[in-house]
Design a protein around this nucleic acid. Structure first.
Length: 951
RNA sequence: ACCGAUGUGGCGGAAUUGGUAGACGCGCUGGAUUCAAAAUCCAGUUUCUUCGGAAGUGGGGGUUCGAUUCCCCCCAUCGGUACCA
């Protein structure tokens, strides 16, 4: 009997379903282990072979952990709200719920095909009201809490109100925006609306003005990646920044804890560094600059208060609140023009244009806090509104960007640091001695930073301050397909829905276009918006709302009394292993950590960090094949040429057209080409090019016939190969279903792992799978030969035992290190050795089945049952290795001369260093390397090598 | 521009603490088997070579008896940059 993967897969799937093999429940008798995959968004394109890479790795690990005695939670679900479904709805009228459901069904079928061990009873969907009920519930909790900076935790707003009533704003230490001081009495006399506005500055979920990408022509707000060079990607219409009142989450309150929490996590250092840099803690000083002709002050944050005497101008972000009011009449039109231009640029563009400086003078002046000198105030897009205070004191002498700006606008540059003692130091380096700086003169930079901060405080000009780059999270989207906010606005006051009224369900809709004013389509559902106790918020929550806490829901996914029971939270605690891509480095992973800390503060979860260990899987890329199309037509006809011809004639004269990889011979290689059949397939696919000319070195294909230049019979039109994204737009998508159909799920799984380290990106090559397919056949042939079961109860020999136990040792070790590719190599070596030994011993073959079960679950299950077992192999024990089988009798040392291998020496294991040295000296093949040389030293590294150092 | 990662044969990759560079595969070449093909099996496969060797892990420099591994500089590619998910 040959291995028939289709039959075996069918049989195993039924067996697993009947026996609920992967169902998991709380079991205090076993240690828990929670393996989580990143939440997939079910896109209409379905899965390609790159998506399951991380899922296969986590599946293997989860199975391995189960076999080593853990109670393993391994769930899956869908991050089902999102822009693509809404965009599709606008285009086609298909309700996002319907298209999402359809996509989920397709995903599920594809996932099932690969044989994952998910407990599907725990599936969650973020767009399901029974799920988003709890997303809304958490939002209300955020809304009803503030962050106490004294106790360093979230506390109920009711306590804040009490404190305000007793001692006014001064009695409160809390994260907040907009400093407003008031007494207890003033508080008691405020209107409800005024109180609400004050409280908004403290709530962890709050409303504030934020900027959106507004596209007038499309009448809609655009996502950042829908905007290219200040124009909409669709249609190329102008886009501008527009202020809008929106919800935000005060993640900045947690900045310090998010930073500290990283130290305890088993994440890669690079991932932690990215999060640290994103949080961007810097210590320095807050300084106030009085305006020359007004009572207003400009607040700046600087890490270099020591350079205060070098300040010769100030720069505000174009969006800064003061720009409009301070700007003089003469400058109004210039400023307005500059603000408009800056509004068209994205932050990346602003920063990427580091080399070209732009800006505009406001006409206003500030007073230097120490010298009272008038200093001009500019605006420039290199200052960002949301970073720091949106304003800087410019020190052209010791800041590269400020210097460029000063040079361009011919502003004064006051040298304030003498770096002559540090010839290697550049601009901005914190070394040197202060000059031209009044009371700081003669101090070293480090001391000057301290002294200046002290003086600023003593003079009431500023104070020590810690700034974070992290910004509060914008939590509003002007979209339909997202969680509705459980908020009503009555008389200008935001009121949370009572918990009994949750979920606030999305009303049905059939026109998904936004309103003319840029509001969410929900604004059109007037009978939903207008209620007796206020108007509903019509924005919806962003994609990351549902994904910021889903890992807790899996612990008790069907609970309708709470988001998860106390019992489940006590038992499962947190995620032990999370596998996902680095693209989530600072988004999802930061928000999830923030929500978890908040839920911890209010006593809802047991842990402060959600993900103990994190592994980042790389991407599987595709091969993109291009053909060259001449930009100029030949006699009115399109002309394609061979890549070699294009290079000769200059590639600028051609445009590159991605072509379906199936048409290309030897695709992915330097010599990929399309032959006549390929050209004809291409024409069938793109009929608009049926009249085109296809020229290559061998001849020309023209209107159905090939005119050869020599005696060639077929066209060989070279294409250009590139490694890149696997995507519909490049016509290079490989569907896992196709591979599973042909080779089987076990083969597909093992090949994905065999491709390379899980953390690295690598290109997909379908051809390479043959090696794994052969391996599986060879493995199967150890159990069946010509349809005959050949496992016997013969005793294994020494070589077999050594091969097996070496493999067990290596595979266990590599699994713990998430080095799946080397596990597969080890399996291959083991099977090669067992084939050579013609092994039939059950002792060996039984362990091999259990060893490979996590990798090839179908094949293993089948063989396990054939070996006479009733219960699933996936609940069997993982094999242990015995060191005694692995002891080597002899060791072969490489003998090197000056680090180059010149000979080999086989000696008994455990031989003393001196003996090895002595034997090495006597090796005849070393003579030619040692003759006439002086041996300076002989280095013997036990079990490794011997090196002769000669002169 | 900034932050992070990666770079080793024709290709994917291996080398656990600084110790035999190229394990395990793909592909290719030759052979066996076959009417033939597929499949299978065996052998070879970094490059150059005067066949003695020499060079070689993106490029340049350094530390070391010894560097893919550690340090400095540079280049290229990929991910992220706050409304794609």
């Amino acid at each position: 009997m040959d291995f028939n993967h289709k039959e075996v897969e069918k049989r195993c799937k039924a067996f697993w379903a009947d026996n609920e093999t992967y169902k998991v429940s709380i079991d205090p008798s076993k240690p828990k282990f929670y393996v989580l995959d990143m939440f997939p968004y079910p896109s209409g394109a379905g899965l390609h072979v790159g998506h399951p890479l991380g899922y296969i790795a986590s599946d293997i690990y989860a199975r391995y952990k189960r076999q080593t005695g853990f109670n393993v939670l391994h769930p899956m679900g869908y991050d089902a709200f999102g822009l693509p479904a809404e965009q599709y709805a606008i285009q086609t009228g298909v309700h996002p719920a319907d298209s999402t459901d359809k996509n989920i069904k397709m995903y599920r079928a594809q996932l099932d095909n690969i044989g994952f061990n998910y407990d599907w009873d725990r599936q969650v969907k973020t767009c399901d009201p029974s799920y988003y009920k709890w997303t809304q519930w958490i939002f209300i909790k955020l809304f009803e809490h503030y962050y106490d900076t004294g106790e360093k935790k979230a506390k109920p707003i009711s306590e804040l109100i009490k404190l305000f009533g007793e001692g006014g704003s001064a009695s409160v230490k809390a994260s907040h925006a907009n400093e407003t001081d008031f007494s207890a009495e003033e508080w008691s006399q405020m209107t409800a609306k005024a109180k609400d506005e004050i409280l908004m500055n403290y709530r962890l979920a709050f409303r504030k003005v934020a900027y959106v990408n507004w596209c007038e022509a499309l009448g809609t707000v655009l996502a950042n990646d829908e905007v290219k060079d200040g124009l909409s990607e669709r249609g190329g219409h102008p886009v501008e920044k527009r202020p809008m009142m929106q919800w935000a989450l005060r993640i900045t309150a947690y900045a310090e804890r998010l930073l500290e929490g990283l130290n305890k996590l088993d994440w890669s250092e690079s991932m932690k560094t990215m999060q640290r840099n994103w949080i961007g803690k810097s210590t320095g000083a807050q300084v106030f600059f009085q305006l020359a002709d007004s009572d207003d002050k400009i607040e700046v944050f600087t890490t270099r208060p020591d350079t205060i005497f070098g300040v010769s101008f100030m720069v505000l972000a174009p969006e800064h609140d003061l720009v409009a009011s301070i700007c003089t009449d003469e400058q109004k039109s210039a400023i307005a023009a500059y603000v408009t231009e800056a509004g068209k640029k994205s932050e990346i563009e602003r920063m990427a244009e580091g080399k070209t400086v732009s800006g505009c003078f406001t006409g206003a002046y500030a007073l230097h806090p120490f010298t009272q000198k008038k200093i001009p105030i500019y605006i420039s897009d290199y200052v960002l509104k949301d970073y720091g205070t949106g304003a800087i004191m410019a020190v052209p002498a010791d800041d590269a960007r400020d210097r460029k700006f000063a040079e361009k606008f011919d502003l004064e540059i006051v040298e304030i640091v003498d770096k002559s003692g540090y010839p290697d130091a550049g601009i901005g380096d914190k070394v040197g001695v202060m000059i031209n700086s009044d009371f700081l003169n003669g101090l070293k930079v480090k001391d000057a930073i301290k002294e200046s901060a002290k003086q600023l405080y003593d003079h009431g000009i500023g104070k020590r301050y810690t700034n974070y780059r992290l910004r509060d999270a914008n939590f509003s989207r002007q979209r339909y397909w997202g969680e509705p906010f459980p908020i009503k606005i009555k008389d200008g006051v935001s009121v949370a829905e009572s918990f009994d009224n949750l979920p606030v369900e999305l009303p049905s809709l059939d026109d998904f276009k936004p309103t003319a004013e840029g509001k969410s389509p929900l604004a059109k559902v007037t009978d939903w918006v207008n209620t007796p106790d206020g108007t509903r918020e019509t924005d919806t929550m962003p994609g990351y709302a549902g994904s910021s806490w889903y890992f807790f829901r899996y612990m008790d996914a069907l609970n309708n009394q709470s988001f998860a029971s106390q019992k489940a939270l006590d038992y499962w605690q947190d995620v032990d292993l999370y596998i996902g891509g680095t693209e989530h480095a600072v988004g999802h992973l930061m928000y999830s950590r923030f929500w978890t800390k908040f839920l911890f503060d209010i006593g809802e979860v047991r842990v402060e960090e959600p993900f103990k260990k994190l592994i980042n899987q790389g991407m599987i890329q595709g091969v993109i094949e291009y053909i060259y199309l001449a930009k100029e037509k030949t006699n009115g006809r399109s002309k394609f040429v061979c890549s070699k011809i294009a290079q000769q004639q200059g590639v600028d004269n051609f445009s590159k057209l991605p072509i379906h990889v199936d048409f290309v011979e030897d695709y992915g290689s330097h010599n990929s080409y399309i032959n006549r059949a390929g050209i004809e397939a291409f024409i069938q696919w793109r009929p608009e090019y049926k009249d085109a000319i296809y020229e290559c070195g061998l001849g020309t294909y023209d209107m159905g016939s090939f005119k050869s230049k020599s005696d060639a019979t077929d066209s060989m039109l070279y294409t250009e190969s590139e490694v890149g994204k696997m995507s519909k737009r490049y016509f290079n998508v490989v569907n896992p279903d196709t591979i599973v159909e042909r080779y089987g799920a076990d083969c597909f799984r093992m090949y994905e792992m065999f491709l390379g380290p899980i953390e690295q990106s690598k290109p997909w090559d379908t051809q390479g799978i043959e090696g794994v397919a052969k391996f599986i056949k060879r493995l199967w042939s150890l159990y069946y030969t010509d349809g005959e079961w050949r496992v016997t109860n013969d005793s294994p020999n020494k070589v077999e035992l050594k091969a097996l136990h070496a493999a067990i040792k290596k595979i266990r070790k590599d699994l713990e290190a998430f080095s799946f590719n080397t596990c597969i190599s080890q399996f291959m070596m083991l099977v090669n050795e067992l084939k050579k030994q013609n092994t039939s011993s059950e002792v060996i073959l039984k362990d091999l089945v259990r060893l490979i079960a996590p990798f090839a679950p179908f094949l293993a299950e089948e063989l396990w049952s054939k070996l006479g077992h009733e219960h699933s192999v996936h609940h069997s024990e993982y094999p242990e290795f015995q060191e005694s089988y692995l002891v080597e009798d002899t060791i072969t040392y490489p003998i090197c001369v000056n680090g180059k291998k010149r000979s080999l020496l086989k000696v008994a294991n455990g031989l003393a260093k001196e003996e090895i040295e002595k034997m090495a000296k006597e090796l005849p093949d070393l003579d030619r390397w040692l003759d006439g040389k002086q041996v300076v030293k002989i280095i013997v590294v036990p079990n490794k090598m011997v090196n002769f150092v000669v002169k």
